[in-house]
Amino acid sequence: MKILKFLIPIYFLIGTGYSFSQTLFGTSVGEVSFYSDTPLEAIEAVNKKSGCIINATSGELAVQLRVTDFNFPNKLMQEHFNENYLESEKYPTASFKGKIKEEVDLTKSGNHAVTAEGTMTMHGVSKPMVVKGTINTSGSEMKLDFKFQVKTEEFQIEVPSLVVTKIAEVIDVTGKMILVKK
């Protein structure tokens, strides 16, 4: 059984080696907010519990948040947002997974302008999407900012004609996250 004694250390050596070979940055308290503006009404909501993980080695990343974590100043709006528009009971999360196109070393300190290509999923609809943003790396921290627009129609979010003048067709979404090395 000498082989067993020999094998176990190798096993753990390789096993732990795997997790060290990747540089992961992550957070579970990222901020994602959206803004809908029409002449009649401005609606703003923020989600401060968004999760994000970036693999700095490969440039791959994933963002996920719970739709019910969006906070509106008017709670009635929040209820309608969840019940009538995003149907968060049926589709509890919204997410993006993709890869950063540019060949940059994200582990290096400094400002990197990045473009992520991938799939966005919300309201049960998945769409290919390109999101532009910046990553500011300093040591073990990574500051991620991004901004993009969502057309409600593209994700089959129905806005009844009664309130169509109060909810914008194109919603601005911004994200602000500080990721730490895992």
Partner: peptide, 21 residues
Amino acid sequence: MLWIPKSIAQDDLMKMLEEEQ
């Protein structure tokens, strides 16, 4: 282990997020 591709794929990142949440 030898069969696992070297990088952690997008879906694995997503799984990690889901576990956290």
